[in-house]
Each structure stands twice: as C-alpha cells, then as structure tokens.
Write a protein that binds this DNA or RNA. Structure first.
Lengths: 344, 344
DNA sequence: GTGAAAGCGCTAACAC
DNA sequence: GTGTTAGCGCTTTCAC
C-alpha cells in the first residue's frame, strides 16, 4: 500500500517539494497560478500528509489528548459526562483536522506522573485537556507542565490556576435552582453535598447557601447531608431525610447521581415525586431525561466547554509564549418533571 | 524541552545506537552485560522512544483506532456501550504500550470513506476496530480494507465476514431469557423488535422464537411489536401491549432502551413491575441497574470483546499475511428486580 | 517566489 | 554480538 508523498505531488505538478509543502501548510509566498496547479495535483493524487513525518520534522503532531478520571475504576460510572467531553473535543478536532487521543487515568495510581510523561513523550500531542477532578491534581498538572506541553483544564467550578481553564458558573446556577424552588413555594429545601475532594461540587454548596440567603431563608444544618457523589450515598441521604416526621418538601442534590439515589429512596418509601417531594440534581446526565419522572437539574455545557478547550489548544498556532487564558461557559436550569409545588 | 534520544543513551552507555535500539525493542543478540548497561542508561536518562520517528521508519505507529457510530448524531444517546468498548480497548493498549485514537462517525455522511481514508493516512494506526452497526457498513469496511490497515469488527450478532470479527451469542442468550421467563410461569411473553437495520438485534428475535419453540409455546404474531431501538418506541409498544384487556404477563425487548420505554409506559398506566408485568431487556447498559425496579437484562461482554479485538490487532505483531480470525464471547442473563412470577 | 540540502529520531539491511 | 549506513516523509534554513 504505497501512499502518495510530497515528492509525488511535486513531480506531478512540476514544482519542488517545498512549494507543495507551502501549499499544504497554507504558507504565504506562493503565486496564485502555482497554488492552483499544486492544489490540482494534490486533489488528483489524493495526497494527505503523513502525520509522523510532519511531527518528526516540525514538533507538531496535530493530536490533542484528553485526560480524565478513569470511569472503569468506579463501580457505577455515570459515563455521560465523558461522552459529552469527547463530543466537544472531537467537534473542534474535526473542523481543524486534528485527531483525538483519549487517556483515562486513575489519579490514585502511584505511577501516574510517569504514565503521563510516557504518553507525552510517545505521542507528543500538541496540547492536553485535563478534566476535573484531575485538573485539580497537582501531580498530574505538574507532570504535564514539566514537559512544556500546552494544557487546558476543564473545571466546573474553578478559574484561577497556573494554566488555562474553561469553567462554568456552578455557584450561580445552584443559587438559581434554590430560587426556582423557592418560587414554587418551597421553604424546607434540603441539600445533599458531594465528595469534598471535588471542588466543583463544593461550589454548588456555596450556591445553595447564597440562594437561601437571597430568599431570606436561614440555613438549617439539619437540612444539609453529606454524600460522596454516588447513587448509593444519595439513596442513603434520601432515606434519612424522607423518613423524618417533618420532612423537607424539596431536596437539591449536588449531582444527578445522588439525586437519582434520592428518587430511588422516595419510590421505595412510596412517596410521590413531585407531589410530596420535589427533587433536583446537577449535571444533566443522559439518565436525567430518561428516568420517570424526568429529573429537574442543571445542564452543564460540558461539550461546549470541551470544544472551547480544544480550540484554545488549536488556536495557539505558533504562539511562542504560552498564554494563560480562562473562559466561563454558563450552565442553566433544566426544569423537568421531578419538581413542583410543595404539598398542601 | 529537549528530549532524550537514542543517541544520548548510546553515548551514555558507550555503545552504538543500534544496540540501544535492540534493547528498547527487546530484540535478541545482545549480551547480558551490554543489556544491563544499556538498560541502566535508559533508566538514568529517562529515555522514551519517539513515536513519530519510530512510525516513520518502521510503519508501525503503536496506535489503535476505534471507530463507532457517532452518538452525537442521535437525540438520546445511551452512551454506555461506547465507554465499555473504550474501556476494553484501553486495557489492552495500556498493557501493550499502545495509544488509542477514537473516531466516532456518522455512517449516513456522504464523505465517510474519504474521512476514514484521511484518518488512516494521517495517523497510520496499526489497526482499526469498527463497532456495529458500522462493521456491517461496506462503505466503511471497504474503505479501511483498501488501505491495507488490519481491521477487526465488533459485531454482537454476526461472525462470518471478510475481516476478523469478535461477536457474541445474541441468539442463544435471547432464547435463554425466554426460557427463564417460562420457568417463572410466564406463557404470554411479548417481544419488541428493534431496528431492522441492526442485524444484531434481528438475531435476538431469532433467539426469542427459538426459546418459545423450546418451551413448546406457539409464536403469536400479536405478541410481537416493532420498535426502532429508542426509548420512545419502547414506550409506544408498551402502551399498545399493556392497554389490551388481555395483556401479556412478560415483555422482552430487544434492547434496554426499549425496555426502559416499556417501564415508563407501565408506570404511567399504574401497572406494577414485576407484580403485574415482568420486563426484560438486552444490553445491560449502566442505566439498567440504576432504574427502579432494576432491569433484568442480558449482559453483553462488550469490554471483553473490545479488549480481545485490540489484542487481535496488537498480537498480529509482524504477521505478513493478514489472518482472518473470529471469536465469540458469550453474554449472560442478569436477573434483577423487573421480572418475577406472573400475577395470580 | 521558489528550490536544494540538511536534518528530525528512529528502524532495516547489511557489514564486521 | 555489535556497528554503519541509508532512508522513512516531512519541515527548516538559507540560497537563488
């Protein structure tokens, strides 16, 4: 399977390989007539540059690498967010002729930094996107920064860092969710906190508090329960809250998995959703639309965030000095069937 | 960011670059003492081969490409199977020092074969894994075969092809599911067929018929309804079946999405699962465990299948002539909460 | 504007 | 067993 090379095209067009190279790379200093002649030859021979040769010679690989927490390491992976991120990055790649390398990894792994080093040395991606919570794991970001590979973090809640970051306004939208529940008539709004290691989830709690404050409702510690982001922990928390004789009329969980857990507990206890209790989540995982009743939640613009992250990397073009940029893509509330007016 | 090269290691160890290359590639004909000396130098300099240079010189990229139907093209992507495939391939890659390139694509796209061509010319993967239903799309497989890139299809139901294939025993397990339902006491077992374009799903219908036959139950056309693999079509089918005055006591859907649709319809009609109707699906998507009641379904060994596919590609090593192999990884029934004895 | 020549870091073929 | 040499297909530098 012999493939067309620059030389073939050059011969076919009657020019030097450098001229063909100029055309391929859209460099200036090519006469219009030459350009057309070469373009024609490229099309006729169906020429496509060889990534490896280009990479070897130029240090650019046209490869983006996406690193995220390995879902295989968990028991109940809700994989929707990974697909969304991939979707966003792939979109940017497609329009810019880049390819995507994926590399899930377990940050608890001792050899993580050497693994990342190895990946970079091996594939030499032009840039790396690291998703939260790994983007908040210095062992990982340091390892990448040490190689000089451009890096963009994808962090729901955090903005200021030593590298570029795409984030969203978790705290604000959480506050909006509380205000929405209040507008329905709820006053007893419980909150289920997520894994404390996950900063993004922490900022949702801040939003909850801000939302209550804005509505003039005092924060009641008894209405705040800790979970660990899993469905199971949500179910447990739901059981605790819903078995009380004076139970909350609305429960807002810091992520959808926990909200689904709460829904399970309500179903098991025979409590109607949203007739007797309203439930809201955060993330808008695919599942949120599919369960019955469909879950009211916050839609994270994850695909857009990932796409922007990829564009940061691709647009850098030849910038010599790394520029640290940051961007916030706002999320928004998705009202579905799991929330309604409080009973009575 | 200067990286260590073969030459650096050679100098450090006082040997030629070829000797270092031999050590790196585990080639024979290196004396034990030399090997140790070189290994030490490699470790000390933290040397790692440059993929691009290796690829350019050897035509091996240590890259595997996974191609599947683009979930972004659909409205309600149940992305679990993609993550599972990725997981399996990644496992094989990790242990063999390969990297994974993902390339979802829409087979309805006119330019699909040129897109694939471009991908291959660009990244030159050592092998490509194509997931169903794309593995049954000649436009795609032909385009890949034309480049001479080794190819493995991942097809739930089909085995014989012009390329290597990893499949599973859909038909047999479907029959087993029917037998299981019969063993609970069910006699009126409805079946919801999937998209007819999806061959794997068709073979599940064969299994349904075989299972009935084995149980001595005649096939009743009124109990067979067509869907299109989506939740919505399952809900519609469920409505039709469950509103009948003499409704089936069990419903077996050709995939989980449709089974979830049936569950929705039952909930809307106030019909208890599994008290009044048993529901079973096929695929064991993540969601299956998470809904309430948890769905009885067939677990597809997708991660294992994908891992094996990657191993086919990696193990080929230097085989000159492509060998067409095929392997069947059996699936198995997952009994959960959505099935039980028929009412009365 | 265009081209010639020198590598990028590695493997392959062959010599020693 | 080990080293030498010539590319792989491209970009870069610099000459024209």
């Amino acid at each position: 399977m012999q493939r067309t090379t620059l030389e073939d095209v050059a011969e076919h067009a009657g020019v030097s390989i450098k001229t063909v190279s100029r055309v391929v790379n859209k460099e200036p200093n090519v006469r219009q007539a030459t350009l057309e002649k070469v373009s024609k030859a490229i099309a006729e021979l169906n020429y496509r540059p060889n990534l490896s040769a280009r990479n070897l010679a130029s240090k650019r690989s046209h490869l983006i690498c996406l690193i995220y927490d390995d879902p295989a390491a968990y028991e109940l992976p809700s994989s929707g967010y990974i697909i969304k991120m991939q979707e966003g990055v792939l979109k940017a790649c497609k329009t810019n002729n880049y390819d995507l390398l994926i590399h899930p990894c377990n940050y608890r792994d001792k050899h993580i930094s050497s693994e990342i080093r190895s990946l970079i040395d091996h594939a030499r991606p032009d840039g790396i996107i690291v998703a939260a919570p790994l983007s908040n794991t210095p062992r990982i970001t340091k390892a990448i920064e040490a190689t000089g590979t451009p890096l963009v973090g994808l962090s729901p809640g955090i903005k200021t860092r030593s590298h570029s970051t795409i984030s969203t306004n978790d705290s604000d939208v959480s506050a909006q969710m509380v205000e929405y529940l209040v507008s329905l008539g709820h006053k007893e709004i419980a909150f289920i906190q997520g894994d404390s290691g996950h900063k993004a989830v922490a900022s949702r709690f801040d939003g909850y508090k801000a939302g209550l404050k804005a509505a003039g409702i005092p924060l009641s510690q008894s209405l705040v329960i800790s979970g660990d982001n899993s469905i199971g922990s949500g179910e447990l928390a739901g059981m605790k809250l819903l078995k009380r004789k004076q139970r909350p009329t609305a429960i807002f969980a810091a992520n959808d998995d926990m909200a689904l857990g709460v829904m399970r507990s309500a179903k098991k206890l025979g409590i109607d959703i949203p007739g007797e209790v309203s439930i809201a989540g955060y993330d808008d995982i695919t599942l949120a639309r599919l369960v019955y009743p469909a879950l009211t939640t916050v839609s994270q613009p994850l695909a857009t965030m990932a796409e922007r992250a990829a564009m940061f990397l691709i647009d850098r073009n030849g910038e010599q000095h790394e520029v640290i940029r940051s961007e916030i893509i706002p999320g928004h509330i998705q009202v579905r069937e799991s929330t309604g007016k409080p009973p009575h």
